[in-house]
Simulated scan of single mutants.
Amino acid sequence: MTSQDPPRYRVHPSPIGDILIVTTADGIVSLHPFDGPLHPELERAALQLRALPLPDDPAADPDGAAAADAAAAQLDEYFDGERREFDLRLDWRLVRGFTRAALEAVRDIPYGETAGYGEVAIAAGSPRAARAVGTACATTPFSIVVPVHRVVRSDGSLGEYGGHPHVKRYLIDLEQAQGV
């Protein structure tokens, strides 16, 4: 895949529902669970990337297919309790400024643990930016592999997780059940 090639997508099943994996020549540009029809998800990705993602095609895009294969395999290992960290090449083009700093800080939250929005803001270098951390978590293109589910409210309650708090609860319970 060259920089002129369109992004590619794959839908991967998981215990929390289907996960849309979108790849570019630079790696995974988006990975998140979704419910409902695929078409609106692809439209959203097309608007963000300014190109409509095409179905995964190993013959036309071996690099993208390899990135999607790696993501699918690592997601399966994570849900089976065999993986605690993701080792994937991420394409950060949809993430800018403080959002990236916040998401990088989220990546440092250990498996099976949680941190408050304020704690992540401090780790990201902006102690008064707890709300911005919330926005970064809500708008991340990388769910699960950048573990925004580990970020909780200051009172310890979970928060929404894109309107799906049951998914956040599932992911936290999955990690805590593995024993830290």
Rank of each mutant, 00 (worst) to 15 (best):
M1I: 09
M1C: 08
S3R: 12
Q4T: 15
P7I: 01
R10L: 10
R10P: 02
R10T: 05
R10E: 07
P13Q: 07
S14R: 05
S14G: 00
P15W: 03
G17T: 03
G17V: 01
D18T: 07
D18F: 09
D18C: 07
L20D: 06
I21V: 15
I21F: 01
V22Q: 00
T23G: 00
T24P: 01
A25Y: 09
D26M: 14
D26T: 12
G27S: 00
I28Y: 05
V29D: 06
S30I: 13
S30L: 13
L31R: 07
L31H: 06
H32L: 15
P33W: 12
F34C: 08
G36N: 06
G36I: 03
G36L: 06
L38V: 12
L42Q: 08
E43A: 12
E43W: 13
R44E: 15
A46V: 10
L49T: 02
A51V: 07
L52N: 11
L54V: 08
D56W: 06
D56Y: 04
A59W: 09
A59D: 11
A60W: 00
P62Y: 03
P62C: 00
D63C: 08
D63A: 15
D63S: 14
A67F: 14
D69A: 10
Q74F: 07
Q74S: 10
L75Y: 04
L75F: 02
D76Q: 12
D76G: 13
Y78M: 05
D80G: 15
R83Y: 04
R84Q: 13
E85F: 12
F86G: 08
F86H: 08
D87K: 10
L88M: 02
W92V: 10
W92Q: 11
L94R: 10
V95L: 05
G97H: 13
F98E: 12
T99V: 14
A101N: 15
A102P: 09
E104A: 13
A105R: 01
V106K: 02
V106I: 08
V106M: 01
R107H: 12
R107V: 08
I109S: 10
I109V: 14
P110V: 03
E113P: 09
T114P: 03
G116R: 04
Y117V: 02
Y117L: 04
V120M: 09
V120R: 09
I122R: 11
I122F: 09
I122T: 12
A123V: 09
A123S: 13
P127D: 04
P127G: 06
R128N: 11
R128V: 14
V133N: 02
G134Y: 00
C137M: 00
C137L: 04
T139V: 14
T140G: 05
P141Q: 02
P141A: 04
F142Q: 04
S143T: 14
S143I: 10
I144F: 11
V146T: 15
H149L: 04
H149Y: 14
V151Y: 01
V152K: 01
D155T: 01
S157V: 07
S157M: 05
L158G: 14
L158I: 10
L158R: 14
G159D: 01
G159F: 02
G162T: 08
H164M: 09
P165F: 00
R169P: 04
L174W: 06
E175G: 07
E175A: 08
E175Q: 15
E175V: 06
Q178E: 14
